[in-house]
């Protein structure tokens, strides 16, 4: 029993170290990578343009729900004027970065893990290596670099759309004066909050895309299955671990920054 715990802990430490090396390798491969810009553009398309609809839809509904729930709660205290504060602070500080990252994991991260897993399975990654092409530089570095830019943008879009969603349900449906809503939004959000939001988004982008790439890239090392099963197993693991790490990192960053 004790030995099993020990073995399990060691394997976790081993995997963490392996993951850190993997991420480091991905950044190091940026040096000397050819036509990196073009690959980054493609990655930006996958993470940015492709995920834009889901970000806007989820952001809008998050704002609408926050506006609705917030209005009914604040209404009991006669403080409807604070609706903007509630919606904007929850969006900027927590929901924006976390939900946007979760949506991006669902759409771009899972696709990345599955794609890399299949490429590993069909020897496409080995083929790259035999051509003298660094598979890290070609497949992973551009995605990681794109994520560092795309995640903050998606988060900012999510928050912006969410704020409008909040104003929509607050003022249009429930009759709160839009000026009151927006002035309390502008009053509540401070530069520090926006900075925290961006820091979170960049961290989530780095962690989730690297984690998804790690699992897809190492699909052949999956111990529980081989072939197509290994791809599905590693994709599942990538999405689950990414989702957990988003919320865990969110907590850690919040407790350090606030």
């Amino acid at each position: 029993m004790l030995r099993a715990i020990g073995r399990y802990s060691l394997s976790i430490v081993h995997e963490l170290g392996d993951f850190a090396l993997f991420t480091g390798q991905s950044f190091r491969s940026a040096v000397g990578a050819r036509r990196l810009g073009r690959r980054i553009v493609r990655a930006g398309f996958e993470q940015g343009v492709r995920c834009l609809p889901v970000i806007i839809i989820v952001g809008m509904f998050t704002g609408l729900v926050l506006g609705l729930q917030g209005y009914y709660v604040l209404n009991r205290f006669g403080s409807e004027s604070l609706l903007g504060t509630l919606v904007s602070l929850s969006l900027v500080r927590e929901l924006g970065p976390a939900l946007a990252a979760l949506m991006l994991v669902g759409q771009a991260g899972s696709a990345l893990a599955a794609e890399l897993g299949i490429q590993r399975n069909t020897e496409q990654i080995a083929a790259l290596e035999t051509m003298g092409v660094s598979s890290h530089a070609y497949l992973i570095t551009p995605r990681l670099l794109a994520a560092l830019v795309v995640y903050p943008m998606q988060t900012a879009l999510f928050v912006t759309v969410g704020l409008w969603g909040g104003s929509l349900s607050g003022s249009l449906l429930l009759g709160l004066e839009p000026g009151v809503y927006w002035s309390s939004v502008e009053h509540a959000v401070k530069a520090q909050d926006v900075r925290e939001c961006i820091i979170k988004a960049v961290t989530f982008g780095l962690l989730t895309i690297s984690l998804c790439a790690y699992h897809g890239f190492n699909a052949h090392r999956c111990s529980s299955a081989t072939g197509a099963r290994a791809v599905s197993a590693s994709t599942t693991r990538a999405v689950v671990q990414s989702s957990i790490i988003v919320l865990a990192a969110d907590y850690i960053i919040t407790s350090f920054l606030v």
Binding site: I118, T122, E123, Q124, A127, T130, M131
Partner: peptide, 11 residues
Amino acid sequence: SFLFQSNALFD
């Protein structure tokens, strides 16, 4: 150059 049994083309 290396030619894989499975061709390993980028699909």
